[in-house]
Write a protein that binds this DNA or RNA. Structure first.
Lengths: 103, 103
DNA sequence: AGTGAAATATTGGATAACCGATACAACTAT
DNA sequence: ATAGTTGTATCGGTTATCCAATATTTCACT
């Protein structure tokens, strides 16, 4: 049966949004996603996303020389989050008001 | 450069949500999506989605024998929208409050 | 009836998202 | 120092989403 609410295509957006609120490591993100959707994404899912976001200049390491790398948004990343958020709201226009119901 | 807010993976959800508000045809949906995201999805995008949603028992034709087929949700479809909406809200937890800002 | 337009349907193919497995690096503890 | 643990990184492969092109149906108009 068709799945109607998979994550495909929005993972990088979610990750970016999460980092915009708190500095986060790959593990932090995996853990947070486990909370939100039940299943913990594979390392092979998260780290390529982080790499790609880094290469796009949206995020940067904010802890250097440590085992655990925390990431934060760059200025460019902040702009990206802003515009992506706008697009998101336009696309999911009819979802507004739903969040309040889903407590 | 990485795109952060593509539609991939959520199209069927959006379509289902749209149909839950109004009876809609394939063309209606294409037109509405053009409004929301600027580009009009190809017929080869929309109709297979409708077919699949129909085969899953989520939607049904509510105009019979007409050129333009309008679809409405089935009972099963309504349940699906409900549960998918819940998942959506959990997944995009931190988007709550964004809709108000994006006027 | 015949032509054209509009909506629907289908098919093949490209893309990329995601996973599983594996490997590597860094810290910890005995 | 060695072993074990935890976080990070990479690679190959599968799968599904979406598009372009094309075909089919249905209606309108003359």
């Amino acid at each position: 049966m068709r799945k109607c609410c998979e994550m495909k295509g929005f993972l990088s957006f979610i990750v970016l949004k999460m980092i915009s609120k708190n500095e986060m490591s790959g593990e932090d993100i995996r853990e947070e996603l486990k909370q939100r959707k039940g299943s913990k994404p594979s390392p092979g899912t998260i780290y390529p996303v982080l790499k790609s976001l880094h290469e796009s200049g949206f995020i940067q390491e904010c802890t250097h020389g440590h085992k655990i790398k925390k990431y934060a948004l760059t200025k460019k990343g902040k702009k990206e989050v802003e515009s992506a958020t706008k697009k998101f709201c336009e696309l999911f226009y009819d979802m507004r008001g739903e969040f309040e119901k889903c407590v």
